[in-house]
C-alpha cells in the first residue's frame, strides 16, 4: 500500500496506483476458486441435509434426535480446530519476524470472525440436543462452561481488533491476544477426558481414532465436516476481500482529504 502514500505530492493518483487499484478490483471480483468453493459448499450442504434428515437410520436410544450428529460436531470442529487453529497459526506467522506480513493479521481476524459464528452455532445446536437427550438446555459441566468461555474470549479478541494504533502495533496486539484466547481450545478438547462431564467423549477424534458410530452415520458426519470446511473456505475468501478493500478505500479517502485540503489552502 506504500505506493498510495508516495503520491502525496502529485495532484492525483499515479499510474502505479491505478494498476494497484485495478489489481485489487480484479482480485476481489469473481474468480474460479470462489465459484468452486461456493458450489462445493452448496452441494455438500444439500447432500448432508438430505442424508442426515431422510436417509440415515434412527439411533436405538436417541430416535431421530441423533440427526443433530450431522450438524453439531461439524460446526464445533470447524470452529475450534479449523477457524481458531488458523487464527492461532496466522498470529504466530505475524509474530515471527521472517514471515511477518499484514496478510497474516487479516487472515487471523477473518478466521476468528467465522469461528465465532460457528462456535455460537455449536452452543445453540448443543443446547437443543442437550434438551432432547439429557433433558436440560444447559448445565455447568466442564465442557459446556469452557466452551462458553471460549466464545467470550474470541468475541473479546474481535473487539480488541477494533482498537486503534499504528498498523504494526495493532497487528502485534491482535496476535498476542489471539494466542491468549487459543489456550482454551485444547482445554475444551480434553475436558471430557480430564474430568467427569455430562457431555459425552468424542466420537471421531477419540484417543485411538476409533469411530464409535455406524458407517452410514459416520460417512454423513464426514460429509458434514467437509461441508463446514468448504463454507469456511468460501467465507475466508469473502472476509479477506472485505479487509483488503477496506484498507485500500480507507487509505485512498484519507489521501483525497489531504489533496482537497491542500487545494483549499
Amino acid at each position: 500500500m506504500t505506493s498510495l502514500l508516495e503520491t502525496e505530492n502529485a495532484d492525483n493518483f499515479s499510474d502505479k496506483d491505478k494498476i494497484l487499484l485495478e489489481n485489487i478490483l480484479k482480485k476481489t471480483g469473481p474468480s474460479r476458486i470462489k465459484y468452486a468453493l461456493g458450489a462445493g459448499s452448496i452441494i455438500t450442504a444439500v447432500l448432508t441435509v438430505w442424508l442426515g434428515l431422510f436417509v440415515t437410520p434412527n439411533d436405538e436410544h436417541l430416535g431421530d434426535t441423533v440427526r443433530l450428529l450431522y450438524v453439531h460436531p461439524p460446526v464445533a470442529w470447524a470452529a475450534l480446530y479449523l477457524a481458531f487453529g488458523t487464527t492461532t497459526l496466522a498470529s504466530l506467522l505475524w509474530l515471527w519476524p521472517k514471515t511477518r506480513s499484514f496478510f497474516w493479521d487479516k487472515v487471523a481476524g477473518a478466521s476468528a470472525e467465522i469461528g465465532v459464528l460457528y462456535l455460537a452455532l455449536t452452543l445453540i445446536t448443543g443446547s437443543i440436543w442437550g434438551r432432547t437427550t439429557w433433558g436440560v438446555w444447559w448445565t455447568w459441566d466442564a465442557r459446556l462452561t469452557l466452551t462458553a468461555v471460549l466464545l467470550v474470549l474470541y468475541v473479546a479478541y474481535l473487539a480488541i481488533r477494533q482498537l486503534d494504533g499504528t498498523s504494526k502495533a495493532k497487528a502485534t496486539r491482535n496476535a498476542i491476544t489471539a494466542l491468549f484466547a487459543a489456550i482454551d481450545v485444547p482445554i475444551v478438547h480434553f475436558s471430557v477426558l480430564w474430568w467427569n462431564t455430562l457431555h459425552q467423549t468424542a466420537s471421531v477424534l477419540t484417543p485411538g481414532l476409533h469411530l464409535t458410530v455406524p458407517l452410514s452415520m459416520g460417512l454423513t458426519m464426514g460429509l458434514g465436516f467437509l461441508c463446514t470446511t468448504l463454507i469456511w473456505g468460501w467465507m475466508m475468501k469473502a472476509r479477506y476481500d472485505i479487509e483488503l478493500l477496506k484498507a485500500v478505500t480507507g487509505e485512498m479517502e484519507s489521501q483525497r482529504a489531504i489533496l482537497q485540503r491542500r487545494s483549499e489552502l
Binding site: 441435509v49 434426535t65 440427526r67 460446526v75 459464528l117 445453540i124 469473502a238
Partner: peptide
Amino acid sequence: MNSYVIAGYLIAIVSIVGYSL
C-alpha cells in the same frame, strides 16, 4: 420429524446463509 432437530438444522442454515449474504 422431531421439531428440535428441525430447529437445529434451520438455525444453522439460516445463520450461515445470512452471514454469507
